[in-house]
Design a protein around this nucleic acid. Structure first.
Length: 115
DNA sequence: ATAGTGACCGCGT
DNA sequence: AACGCGGCCACTA
């Protein structure tokens, strides 16, 4: 398993029950604020039944993202509802449930480091 | 090493 | 408010 993937799973595992994080948020916490898509790919490859609360990762609009299997989307929504999240239509109320637990890392724009 | 891909994101119609 | 477009960057073939 790739280091990046592990880092993503480790972070996702810290999201408490009843709260959610966005792909971009996870990316930012990893120090790569522009790598939201990569986080999505990591989640896509997330092995099932490994204890990682994959359903707590949603997109910036509070919606469930899944291309391939529609069943997966429903599953995610059901899991979220089961955790008592307040849904506004098809979307999670981010203002209310966004995870604020992890500390930001020193930051210093990683994009600049690339120059 | 290079080119293609996408469970994203933010901004402009 | 909803939709489209282009940038992004880690991963894959």
């Amino acid at each position: 398993m790739r280091p990046f993937d592990r880092a993503v799973y480790r972070l996702v595992s810290m999201i408490p029950r009843g709260q959610v994080a966005t792909y971009g948020q996870i990316a930012a916490l990893l120090g790569a604020p522009r790598a939201a898509r990569a986080v999505g790919q990591a989640m896509k490859r997330c092995p099932a039944g490994n204890g990682v609360p994959w359903h707590r990762v949603i997109n910036a609009r509070g919606g469930v993202s899944l291309r391939a299997n529609v069943a997966g989307m429903l599953t995610q929504r059901i899991l979220l509802e089961r955790e008592g999240l307040r849904l506004v239509g098809q979307r999670v109320d981010l203002h209310r449930h966004r995870w604020r637990g992890a500390k930001r890392r020193p930051a210093a724009a990683p994009t600049l480091a690339r120059l």
